[in-house]
């Protein structure tokens, strides 16, 4: 019995250490962003907001932030539309080649970003379509759509297969049913998909770096500062970036978990 307690406690401590390791960089970045030392170490320097002041007074940061917001909102909307269509098709239809359809829908996240970045750069350059904000939006939509699809598909799993027929039966055409039944039913998952894909796009740097040209997004800017030298501004910008994406991911998760499947019959 003593053995059991020892084992349980060592596992507990071990798991705690793993969580500390995972969240250490996020916490460190937050702490360093308010720390006066240029090269933070122990003991910490004094409390300061100078890095924030420096970062936020830099017009380039604001330009990049604006671009990042435009890119992530646009790709989130596009990816959610595409993800919804694919999820609905998977839910509703059986057809020849459906396996291939699903593979195509879910494959992008398994391709290393750097390879997809190179391929997209080559492809878009052929149409003189690289180096613009729209290039980043296009590529991010590809990357984000599978996440949107997965989130919405999970919600559709909880939909009674007779719900749509019931609406047709009461006089709603397929399109009207989509608007008045399927969309209301999947609304929380659509909102979750928007948040999650916005977070993915907001943090993506490899593809954005390759195809954005001079239209740098925030992560690309961080990447370039990082390549130069250690600059504590990154902690300030990084903390702001973390706050944005953590908020988005947490909202998404709450939306997904919030509505438990309810019993269909009493």
């Amino acid at each position: 019995m003593r053995d059991d307690t020892v084992l349980r406690w060592s596992l507990r401590v071990y798991t705690a250490v793993i969580f500390v390791f995972i969240f250490a960089p996020i916490a460190a970045s937050l702490v360093f962003s308010f720390n006066s030392d240029r090269f933070p170490s122990i003991p910490l320097g004094t409390f300061t907001t100078q890095w924030y002041a420096k970062a936020f007074s830099n017009p380039e940061v604001w330009d990049a932030a604006l671009r990042s917001v435009i890119v992530s909102v646009s790709s989130a909307v596009l990816a959610t539309i595409i993800g919804f269509s694919a999820a609905y098709t998977d839910y509703r239809y059986e057809f020849f080649g459906k396996k291939a359809f699903l593979v195509l829908a879910l494959l992008p996240p398994t391709i290393p970003l750097i390879i997809f970045a190179l391929a997209t750069l080559g492809w878009l350059s052929m149409f003189q379509a690289s180096g613009m904000m729209i290039s980043v939006i296009i590529a991010h939509t590809v990357l984000c759509a599978p996440f949107a699809m997965a989130v919405i598909r999970l919600r559709l799993n909880q939909m009674d297969p007779n719900l749509e027929p019931a609406a047709w039966n009461l006089g709603a055409s397929e399109w009207v049913t989509m608007k008045s039944v399927v969309l209301p039913f999947t609304r929380p998952s659509i909102a979750a998909a928007l948040c999650l894909t916005a977070a993915v796009s907001f943090d993506e740097f490899a593809v954005a770096w390759f195809v954005s040209g001079l239209n740098k997004t925030v992560p690309v800017m961080i990447l370039e500062i990082l390549t130069g030298n250690i600059d504590p501004q990154i902690n300030a910008i990084g903390t702001a970036v973390f706050m944005v994406s953590i908020t988005l991911v947490v909202i998404a998760q709450v939306l997904i978990m919030g509505r438990r499947p309810k019993p269909e019959s009493a």
Partner: peptide, 16 residues
Amino acid sequence: IPFFTSYLVRIFAWQV
């Protein structure tokens, strides 16, 4: 949460 948050910033934190 970390899976969907900036990998780049986390790596920078490790650098420091």
